[in-house]
């Protein structure tokens, strides 16, 4: 059994609420442990916000998010026609060891996605970013 949910999301921060509600509903239906719900929400928020904040120059754009829950894994796919962004190559690693006063504000979002997912794949196809990430349910 697997469940798949497809969302069209606008580049407005309020859209996060709708994403969270979708996850909570699925989590409830499938009785996910709280840690899995947390992780899934975190990956969706951080990657979604990255597209909203940095993917486009201006204006409201729409991108696709799909969430597939299989017995052992959750697969999240983002498809957007924003500027090319391959997190595996283009994201700079945050400074994690600095003292409080030197610690940069921000730069953690993509780091969280990479830490919280068990697989990440990227391809650019037909002027779109396809970013696919997998979270294992048993962890």
């Amino acid at each position: 059994m697997s469940a798949r949910i497809d969302l069209k999301v606008e580049t407005r921060h309020e859209e996060l609420q709708r994403i969270f509600e979708t996850v909570e509903k699925l989590a409830e239906e499938e009785d996910w442990p709280p840690a899995l719900t947390f992780k899934t929400n975190l990956v969706l928020e951080e990657f979604g916000l990255n597209i909203m904040n940095y993917g486009f120059d201006e204006g409201i754009h729409t991108f696709d998010v799909s969430l597939t829950s299989s017995p052992d894994t959750i697969t999240i796919e983002f498809v957007d026609d924003g500027r090319p962004f391959n997190p595996l190559e283009d994201a700079s690693a945050p400074e994690l060891d600095s003292a409080i006063q030197d610690r940069a504000i921000g730069g953690l979002g993509i780091h969280f996605v990479m830490e919280m997912t068990d697989d990440f794949q990227y391809r650019r196809e037909n002027s779109r970013n396809h970013s696919t990430m997998v979270i294992r349910k048993s962890d």
């Binding site: 929400n41 975190l42 928020e45 951080e46 953690l108």
Partner: peptide, 10 residues
């Protein structure tokens, strides 16, 4: 606290 993302850690 049930959830915090990088926006909250910031």
């Amino acid at each position: 606290l049930t959830y915090i993302s990088s926006a909250g850690l910031r």
